[in-house]
């Protein structure tokens, strides 16, 4: 185990990202923490540190997806997008980390860099690519969008609002990749494959279930949501953005397992 840290090497490698990072340094980094109660700051630092690592792990997932897509002979523009999403997620990790720093510092997050992406369990390169895409794009990214949208709507800090705006802009594309890939692969996947993908989606959703029903803290306006708001947004997103699009493609989520 290691503590989660991020660093950049600079030089030509930072210049390469200059266009995509345009405006980052001009964000109002000094503003977010001013006048905020210590408890609210602590909650926000925890959430934004978790956010930075989530983005880092998502980068690993898209890198794995790009590799599996290549092996499966997927369309080159889809493969290129998956590779490009790695850079998106790295920039989101940077933004989240800088927010945590601006709020007083990140919390100590113990991570295992050798275990960033759950390996697919299906047989065959196409099903393995589809499995990763269902888990990452059709579930994770699809659920992320409305939750971050709500956090943005409730943000009282201009910095938080602007950072979330940038992240949401990119995540929308990440969530779209899944349905596009499944539509391309539709004739190549069997009913057995689709049943497997349904179990994968169900398992991915079920993993979030301990988030619900526990004691609840208040929202902070710094990207931390109150339980009631979070739960409602999650449930709505689950039904409309995850279950329905998958069902359209013959992939059924078992609600018994999700309840």
């Amino acid at each position: 185990m290691n503590f989660f840290e991020l660093e950049a090497v600079g030089g030509p490698w930072s210049r390469r990202l200059a266009r995509r990072r345009a405006g980052f340094d001009a964000l109002p980094w000094h503003e977010a923490a001013l006048g905020v109660a210590p408890e609210a700051l602590a909650a926000a630092r925890w959430v934004w540190t978790q956010s930075a690592f989530s983005e880092y792990a998502s980068a690993a997932a898209f890198a794995e997806i790009a590799t599996r897509m290549l092996a499966a002979g997927a369309p080159i523009d889809l493969v290129a997008a998956a590779g490009d999403f790695v850079a998106d997620e790295m920039l989101h990790a940077e933004l989240s980390a800088r927010v945590a720093a601006a709020l007083g510092g990140a919390v100590a997050l113990e991570v295992d860099y050798r275990k960033l992406v759950r390996p697919p369990s299906g047989q065959g390169v196409l099903l393995q690519a589809a499995e990763l895409i269902v888990r990452t794009s059709c579930v994770g990214e699809a659920l992320t969008l409305p939750v971050l949208g709500l956090a943005k709507a409730q943000a009282t800090s201009p910095l938080i609002r602007r950072v979330l705006t940038r992240i949401i802009r990119d995540e929308a594309h990440h969530a779209q990749m899944g349905p596009w890939f499944l539509d391309w692969a539709a004739d190549r996947l069997t009913d057995t494959d689709r049943s497997h993908l349904g179990r994968v989606a169900t398992s991915a959703i079920r993993d979030f279930s301990p988030l619900f029903g526990a004691a609840c803290g208040p929202g902070t306006g710094l990207g931390v949501l109150a339980c009631r708001d979070y739960d409602a947004a999650f449930a709505e997103a689950l039904s409309r953005r995850v279950v329905a699009p998958l069902k359209t493609r013959g992939i059924d989520v078992s609600f018994d397992a999700v309840d």
């Binding site: 989530s54 998502s58 989101h92 989240s96 990452t136 992320t144 939750v147 803290g217």
Partner: peptide, 17 residues
């Protein structure tokens, strides 16, 4: 199995869980 969950979904405060 200890693999991180995919998605930037941890938006509840630390007192929750």
């Amino acid at each position: 199995d200890g693999f991180p969950l995919v998605g930037n979904l941890m938006r509840k405060g630390p007192s929750l869980i």
